[in-house]
């Protein structure tokens, strides 16, 4: 296991091995997202109370799930970067932060557009919405810190520390709707109970979630590979590649 860890921690090994994943992820995300949009927007039923507006769910929920799990992944990378001083982990933190920020913004924006027709307001300072806004600021903060002071090692460490500490926000987002009275409703999906919607709705939703993940890993991988080449521009393996 350690051998594997060290191999994939090497920028050269990672760059050469991960290239084959790009077309796979591109195809998967294109197909799955396309099918998910078709299924969710055209085939899935309207809701008995919310009518057609419920379809915003097929973008909002995957975005919200991905926003939180991409933060968790960023924090894990930050932890590895802090403890093992693995360069590739630092590059991973740096490249995932803007994607996470965009996805969080998408979750906030679609939630806002959904809130106006259903709740009657674009925004309310309830615990769920506020903690998700904080998630966006955490992504933005990590991004700003990482790019501060001319890409220095210190900036990388500061950004990683912030990313790890920000993990504390994730349980707050998750349980905000249970711990406090909020306008946002509690979770429709739990590990123990059946989903609070029929398959005709959670089917396309699950498909969109998978599609979002595929797209996310694609975007991350492309950015990370690009960043590795940029950082290792003087190393032999990049020079060799450029000559070809």
């Amino acid at each position: 296991m350690w051998r594997w860890f060290h191999q994939w921690g090497s920028p050269k090994f990672f760059y050469h091995r991960s290239g084959a994943l790009i077309p796979v992820l591109a195809l998967a995300s294109g197909l799955i997202l396309g099918a998910g949009v078709f299924w969710g927007l055209l085939i899935a039923p309207a809701d008995y109370q919310q009518g057609e507006s419920v379809r915003i769910m097929y973008v909002h929920v995957p975005a919200a799930i991905l926003a939180q799990s991409s933060y968790a992944m960023m924090a894990v990378m930050a932890l590895i970067s802090l403890i093992w001083r693995l360069k590739i982990a630092d590059a991973a933190v740096q490249t995932v932060a803007p994607i996470g920020a965009c996805i969080t913004l998408l979750a906030l924006a679609t939630g806002s557009l959904w809130g106006k027709p259903m709740w009657g307001t674009y925004w309310v300072w309830d615990a769920r919405l506020t903690s998700t806004l904080i998630l966006f600021f955490l992504f933005a903060g990590v991004l700003a810190l990482r790019n501060a002071a001319g890409q220095s090692q210190t900036a990388g460490r500061a950004a990683s520390v912030l990313a790890v500490i920000g993990l504390l926000n994730l349980p707050i987002i998750k349980y905000s709707v249970d711990w406090w009275f909020t306008l946002h409703q509690p979770a429709s999906f739990t590990l123990t109970d059946r989903p609070a919607m029929p398959f005709s709705m959670w089917g396309p939703l699950l498909m969109m979630v998978v599609g979002f993940y595929a797209w996310f890993f694609l975007a991350w991988l492309i950015r990370l590979r690009h960043e590795l080449v940029k950082r290792e521009i003087r190393s032999d393996w990049v020079q060799q590649m450029m000559k070809q």
Binding site: P45, A46, D47, Y48, Q49, Q50, V54, M57, M118, W119, G120, T121, V124, L183, Q185, P186, A187, S188, A196, M197, P198, S200, M201
Partner: peptide, 10 residues
């Protein structure tokens, strides 16, 4: 403001 629950159905 209207609050709705977590259940959805056709």
């Amino acid at each position: 403001l209207a609050k709705h629950d977590e259940k959805y159905m056709p």
